[in-house]
Design a protein around this nucleic acid. Structure first.
Lengths: 121, 121
DNA sequence: TCCTCACATGATTATTTGTTCATATATTCA
DNA sequence: TGAATATATGAACAAATAATCATGTGAGGA
C-alpha cells in the first residue's frame, strides 16, 4: 500500500522501465546508452547536472556555484544541450538551464544507491 | 496490487533508493558516481556488461560473442573487476565472470527507458 | 551609437583512454 | 616434464576529451 506511493513518487516512468527487455537490446541502442553514460561520466558535467536537479540556473550561477570558468561551463552545457539532456530559456542577457526530464534524477538515484550499498558491505 | 509486485520484481533495492537524498550529495560521492558512469560509457565495456546480465561467461565466450580480441576483453574486465562491478570464479583454465550486483541492471534499465521515451517524442 | 555584460564558440594543448602487440602466468593433458 | 590452452598484463600508440585562451555575438543601458 505504502510501497505503491513511494514507487510512483521516487521512480517516475516505471511504466517504461517495465517494458524494457534487456535481452532485446540492439547494438545501436547499446551505443546510444554508452553515449548517454558518457555525459554523466565527467565530474564537472555531473556537478552541473546535479546542480540542476532541483532548480533552473543561469550560466553565471553555475560558474559561481561550482567555481568554474564561464567558458568551461558553456562548453559542457553545449554537450548536454546537443544530447537533449538539458533545455534552456533566454531571459534578457541571461540563459536559464534546466533538466530535460526526470529520468536523469532516477538514473542518478539508482547509481547512488549502488555506491551506498557498496559502502555498507 | 500488481504494481507492488512489478516494482519489487524489476527494480531491486528500492529501499536504498528511497533513502537517497540528492541534496546531500557530497563532492566525493559525485566523483565516485562519475567514475562509475565512466565504466558504462564505453561501448565495448557496456557490451560486456550487457552480455553478463543474464548469465556468467568465461573470457573466451565473451571474445567469441562480441568479436573482440582476448587482450581487449581482459583489459576491460580488469577495469570492471577493480571497480567491483563484476566478480569472477576460476574453473580449471577458464575464468567465469558475472555481475557483482543487481544495481547494474536497474541502472541500465532506467537509462534505456530514457532513450525509449526520447524516441517516442 | 557605444559600451558593458552574459553567454557561445573556435583553436590549441595537455591528459586520458581504448586498442594492439608482445609476453608472462597458470592449468591441463600427454 | 613439456606442449597447448586460457587468461593476465606491460608497453606503446593513436584517438578522444577536458580545460583554457582568445574572440565572437547579441541584448540592454547610458
Amino acid at each position: 500500500m505504502k510501497d505503491e506511493f513511494i514507487c510512483e513518487e521516487n521512480c517516475p516512468h516505471m511504466a517504461t522501465v517495465q517494458k524494457v527487455k534487456l535481452e532485446d537490446m540492439t547494438r545501436s541502442s547499446q551505443k546510444q546508452l554508452a553515449e548517454m553514460f558518457k555525459l554523466f561520466s565527467d565530474e564537472t558535467r555531473l556537478r552541473i547536472i546535479c546542480s540542476l536537479l532541483n532548480t533552473e540556473l543561469c550560466v553565471c550561477d553555475l560558474c559561481a556555484l561550482l567555481e568554474l570558468t564561464q567558458s568551461n561551463v558553456s562548453h559542457q552545457l553545449q554537450l548536454l544541450r546537443n544530447s537533449k539532456l538539458v533545455k534552456y530559456r533566454k531571459e534578457g542577457k541571461q540563459v536559464y538551464y534546466s533538466l530535460e526530464d526526470e529520468h536523469v534524477e532516477s538514473i542518478i538515484k539508482m547509481a547512488l544507491a549502488h555506491i551506498l550499498e557498496e559502502k555498507m558491505k
